[in-house]
Design a protein around this nucleic acid. Structure first.
Lengths: 349, 349
DNA sequence: TTTCAACACGAAAACGTTTGCGTAACGCAA
DNA sequence: TTGCGTTACGCAAACGTTTTCGTGTTGAAA
């Protein structure tokens, strides 16, 4: 087992100084053609590669991006990571991942673990618990220490950083608009409690779409699910709530669900109740994931372009990192909106 | 914007030496109660945290694990990462992720980027292209440089490292056994070409199950899909192939699919052909992912326990890392088999 | 012969830690 | 006064780089 070879070892072996070896490898003109070749040959033979940690210490940057997301077993978030990793790699950066598990504490701890030199900047999406508590001091402190953050999807406006979001309101309006133009008169929404910002915004889009078409919203058609029901254990409870919705509003002919799971569950329940999709009930959901594509009937969905969000976030962050070096701090932050688009499939007419 | 405070700054500010500060913070008995408190108070005030990179350089270990997987938008792999991150975090490690995208070159490059000091060891699952080319020199070299590897799921035996796998053969036998005991006489398998090791093993399990029950395998019931068809673009082609299978073998009353996508696609095609699930056709798939749980009918699947695989892998790796320190190199490698289990749902009787 | 570039290389500092060892100052016993 | 043991601290090395600056050796011009 040969350990990794260092400059020092090469230097000793070739009986020159460390600096000579370093310069030779970097093709410095200070070094004679002769020694340069000798050193390079030796380095190649022993497969020399500069030690990243030493470089990080010297250069005071790690060429590594920290990602903090609530969970990774999730179509949207993993798509975002794919996008981040893609451009990070292309631009010579590595990607280190922390999962907050939707917990405030884990989010804070994860950030602290990474903020002490391990990374150059963060890309993150805020945990639900953090949104609920509205405690953002860890973001502020990180930024104050000169470490830039890019937030995506779940953002909060008062933090001074770049942001990449989807236009949830507009996306929801597209979805509901599709139902309306498909002839639906009684459109229900299945959404989350309001503290989840995206749920709130999508609900807002639903209401605006109705208003635009002079349809009076009915409180009984708005089903706000306690968010914990997303975990698989509470599937029964979710089904029950949706069943109640349908039973007490038999006129429903369209459903807008703020995520795939709500949509497929609604379809399952509707079928049980004898409704035909899309003939007597049309369904549109948010998040164009694997369920939408492959369940039967396939779902008409609002695609969020997760990968694009990841790519944009990474580019924003790296741009800022590589700008900081030379220029003064540009304290102008961008908020990029990635357009959604509606993918029409079998669950609508 | 106050930059991160260092020992040197504290030392200068308090007019003591760097070593005094360091020792005071680590509660060394060499330091007087007085200075210790002064230093600790100051450090707390300025929120001092030791720089990870400097520690890594000094200790020659990074407390970071590198993960290389083919893709991340994938239920199984993201579950594995969840498991890895869980125990890594608990044991004080970070996790850095590289995606090979099933490409040999990206796998090699990713490993090289990380192997130069950024991490202490790898957990990985081999890219399909690598399996096809059977070129494993990058693994061997990494190991020779003293960096341990743990392979999971897609492994190759000749590499000297710990491995965590599922018993694909046994899992497949369970799946096919379920179909047989449910009364199926003509069971088809939808699998991948043989170079994908798991596809090959699951096919083997299928054959063994048939043999155990004295059923003669028929070549026409074995459909081997060219793997690229997993990408969504080629869904049509996949459907066509499956349709051909059904049409030329009308007696088929059971299908074993080696992944969820093949299973739901088979169901979709079968329905189009007028077959009822599970009455006239029963389906079992491998990989207990989101499709299995939430599609209609829900799928009976072989669960691989991805998270457990991740946890076990991380524990194996970290154990080895922390053993290397003191003891001699233990050159005894483990191969842990995580048991699968069959989850019965609506797609079987 | 003297002087001075040009050349080719080495020494050392710096990045931020930890730690073994040396030592000044002090008190106290001989 | 000498000697010795504590106590409380500082020095310096080490981890592996890069880079600035200094310097010894040439060869050639004056």
């Amino acid at each position: 087992m040969k350990r990794k070879v260092t400059l020092k070892q090469i230097a000793k072996e070739l009986d020159v100084s460390i600096s000579t070896v370093s310069k030779a490898l970097r093709n410095s003109i200070e070094i004679s053609e002769d020694t340069r070749q000798k050193v390079q040959a030796f380095a190649k033979l022993y497969n020399y590669r500069p030690n990243n940690i030493a470089l990080s210490l010297k250069n005071r940057k790690t060429k590594t991006i920290g990602i903090i997301i609530p969970e990774i077993v999730h179509y949207f978030f993993s798509k975002v990571i794919t996008g981040i990793e893609l451009v990070a790699n292309k631009r010579g950066y590595n990607v280190i991942v922390g999962l907050s598990n939707e917990s405030f504490d884990k989010e804070v701890i994860n950030m602290q673990m990474l903020a002490n030199g391990s990374i150059d900047g963060f890309i993150l999406s805020i945990a639900k618990e953090t949104l609920q508590q509205q405690d953002y001091h860890h973001f502020i402190e990180t930024i104050n220490q000169g470490m830039p953050i890019v937030m995506f999807d779940r953002v909060v406006n008062e933090i001074p950083c770049d942001k990449v979001i989807v236009d949830d309101v507009k996306g929801a309006k597209k979805a509901v608009g599709k139902l309306i133009s498909g002839g639906c008169k009684h459109i229900a929404i299945i959404t989350t409690k309001d503290y989840v910002s995206v749920g709130k915004l999508r609900t807002q889009g639903y209401l605006e779409a109705l208003e635009d078409h002079k349809i009076n919203p009915k409180a009984s058609l708005i089903l706000k699910i306690e968010d914990k029901l997303l975990s698989d254990d509470h599937l029964d409870k979710l089904e029950n709530e949706i069943e109640q919705l349908f039973k007490s509003n038999t006129a429903i002919d369209g459903v807008f669900a703020v995520n795939e799971l709500y949509a497929v569950t609604a379809i399952k329940v509707a079928r049980k109740l004898g409704l035909e999709i899309p003939k007597s009930l049309q369904v549109v959901s948010f998040t164009d994931g694997v369920l939408s594509k492959h369940s039967t009937p396939s779902l008409t969905t609002v695609s969020q372009h997760g990968q694009e969000i990841g790519e944009k976030s990474a580019n924003l962050l790296i741009n800022r990192l590589e700008l900081d070096e030379n220029d003064e701090d540009e304290e102008i932050f961008e908020t990029v909106v990635i357009e959604t688009n509606l993918i029409e499939r079998e669950s609508t007419k």
